[in-house]
């Protein structure tokens, strides 16, 4: 946690991930660059087909050579993840990189008590004794704010509610004090009231332990409230990236703006129907040479259909970059229709 400025915790350089499907070659991630510092929270937003899940699965090193062809580089804490042997990868999974998925039920063992599952990771990676590990597991359940942790640690996954299972997953990911936490739609399967509290838990854990977080979500609101920086993905590419304020309050790429307008919200004295984005989600098999969003973009011109815009800095805003031929002119944040209460 010392070299925060000089050496990023994670850097992804020009990453390309391709899959062979019966219909043809699909480029799920197409030249993505990312950097994450210690204790920083990065949100990745995108809809289906945006490549956001493939991206973090690649960062984890979950794909084997037969599954996908991967180009580019992923450097975690000075080590290149893509060239690691399966053994080396297993060593960092759970100990240095924690992972949380959408459906905790599928990730938890059905008949082993949850406390024992957490303890197992501790014994494996930290060499604790059975007793120490069990004690620590209870502490961890307490850390993720599960009431009556000692009793809960002896229960099995199906005896817990969805929110509690996700807390167990977080406790498990936190068990070995990882440096990086990767969360793929961690709250999508949960009720809204539970969702808010799980996200608050992420906030406090990252703040307290200086853990880097990558939060993948389809929901701009989730990412907007609970991360520092955002990358908006569309059809395998990053369309816009910057701080949460920059991207969500002054969106520059047209897709980001359209996505914000499509999110349902409500006004104080009148109702507003969200503005839909026309067309269908991108089909990765039939991408054109131009901007991938052009077929759905109301402001698209011939230029957009012919050439792909590069991700370039937005004038006057450091760190804020966008890939758009016709960027939205910096609107007054106050003009955007977002009022509650």
């Amino acid at each position: 946690m010392t070299d925060t400025v000089t050496v990023p915790l994670l850097s992804v350089e020009n990453l390309k991930v391709r899959f062979a499907t019966p219909e043809g070659l699909v480029t799920a991630v197409d030249g993505v660059d990312l950097q994450l510092g210690h204790g920083e929270r990065l949100g990745i937003v995108g809809e289906s087909g945006s490549g956001k899940s493939v991206l973090i699965r690649t960062i984890m090193g979950l794909y084997r050579p037969g599954d996908a062809s991967i180009e580019g580089d992923v450097v975690f804490d000075g080590r290149r993840v893509l060239t690691m042997t399966p053994r080396e990868r297993r060593r960092i999974w759970g100990s240095e990189i924690g992972m949380i998925f959408q459906d905790p039920m599928n990730s938890l063992h059905p008949i082993t008590p949850v406390g024992a599952q957490i303890a197992e990771a501790l014994r494996l990676h930290r060499g604790m004794t059975r007793k120490e590990a069990a004690e620590r597991a209870v502490e961890l359940l307490d850390l993720v704010k599960i009431a009556d942790p000692r009793r809960r640690s002896r229960q099995r996954a199906h005896e817990l509610s969805g929110g509690m299972r996700q807390r167990v997953m977080i406790a498990m990911a936190m068990a070995c004090e990882p440096k990086l936490l990767l969360a793929d739609e961690p709250t999508t399967a949960l009720d809204v009231t539970v969702q808010a509290r799980i996200l608050e838990l992420f906030d406090s854990l990252c703040g307290e332990f200086g853990i880097g977080l990558i939060l993948v979500s389809h929901d701009l609101g989730v990412v907007g409230r609970h991360t520092d920086r955002v990358a908006v993905m569309y059809a395998g590419q990053v369309g816009e990236t910057g701080s949460v304020r920059q991207v969500l309050e002054r969106p520059t790429m047209r897709y980001t703006g359209a996505l914000l307008d499509a999110a349902p919200r409500w006004g104080r004295d009148h109702q507003v129907l969200p503005t839909p984005i026309g067309g269908q989600p991108p089909n990765l098999l039939t991408l054109g040479p131009g901007c991938h969003f052009a077929p759905r973009c109301p402001g698209a011109t011939d230029r957009c259909r012919e050439a792909r815009p590069a991700l370039v800095a937005v004038p006057g805003q450091p760190e804020h970059r966008a890939a758009c031929w016709h960027p939205i002119d910096a609107p007054d944040p106050a003009e955007r229709e977002v009022t509650v209460r």
């Binding site: 090193g61 062809s69 180009e71 580019g72």
Partner: peptide
């Protein structure tokens, strides 16, 4: 199961195990 395809030696397509 040896090593992953790396930065330079990216094959156009992995052989699908299926």
């Amino acid at each position: 199961m040896t090593t992953t395809t790396t930065a330079t030696g990216g094959r156009p397509a992995g052989t699908p195990r299926v």
